[in-house]
Nucleic acid binder design. Structure first.
Lengths: 161, 161
DNA sequence: ATTGAAATAGCGTCAAT
DNA sequence: ATTGACGCTATTTCAAT
């Protein structure tokens, strides 16, 4: 999951940075000591490099991955939202607000007939319908919202590098 | 992002568990000591509760969120895959293999005309096309793959609870 | 930028409740 | 299940390279 960002594509990561990224991708709570050991550098160096990776925006954050069903949101959906008119202000408002809508896991501004895909976890089918009506269909500029239930959602487990 | 899981929806989380989940969702590297302070419990208790949350599958994992562009994959796409025949074996094979395909961030088995949505980050437009041809279109059982470029991808930042 | 060392802080086991 | 205390390990700063 990524930032708004047009990351300035700084100089490419060296082998050690890549290693650190991969390790933290796999286990975001791995201790600095173990990271250093695995990467073959001193602990203090490791600290500096990981901080730098965060500052440079390579590591956007480290987050617990929560099972929505276990926290009362067993119904997941991907909602395809189409805008009418395509006024820039509509997109900007949507972009600013959609991450904070209740149950939103992610949202993707895409090319093609659909403008946005919104990944949401809801308490029930009823709650999902309410979400779509209240926050999407009802929104100025939105022409249509098409909801697809998610039967199963999988995380990529290969390293990105 | 969630597991295959049909989580047995154990007894609902109490207020402290919810707090811990929310804290780790926001900052997966928060120290046990600070977690305990924020949740108002002893450090040792906190350790036990977090372990339990993992064992119960509430916390699926803790992972660094990497900017794909910063690791050489600046082109993101959501690919809608449609299967023909809908043989169970095709779905099962796909489910097992798709998380390990290069650059796959996530995949969603959905209802409707599309069967799977595959979220991928590629090195270039060419590499994206190759990915689709090699791993999706070319796959037994796959009828069609429709690629939508992702202009921007946003993470939900409200708590799930 | 990387390092080792030293001081500080955190982790995790345990016996008790 | 929760706790405080204790021994151990990890983090982080810093002066030096």
């Amino acid at each position: 999951m990524a930032k708004p960002v047009q990351t300035s594509e700084e100089r490419p990561l060296d082998a050690i940075d890549q290693r650190l990224v991969r390790l933290l991708e796999e286990d975001g709570r791995m201790s600095n000591a173990m990271l250093a050991r695995e990467a073959g550098i001193a602990e203090s160096t490791c600290l500096v490099r990981v901080r730098s990776l965060r500052e440079r925006g390579v590591i956007l954050g480290i987050h617990a991955d929560i099972d929505p069903a276990a926290v009362g949101r067993p119904v997941q959906a991907m909602i395809a939202v189409r805008f009418g008119g395509h006024r820039r202000s509509h997109f900007e408002a949507f972009r600013d607000e959609v991450p904070r809508l209740p149950g939103v896991i992610g949202a993707y501004h895409v090319s093609g007939a659909t403008d946005y895909l919104v990944h949401v976890a809801a308490e029930s089918a009823d709650a999902l319908r309410d979400f779509v009506l209240d926050h999407l269909t009802n929104r100025p500029g939105v022409l249509h919202a098409e909801t697809a239930l998610i039967f199963e959602s999988l995380r990529g487990d290969g390293p990105l590098t």
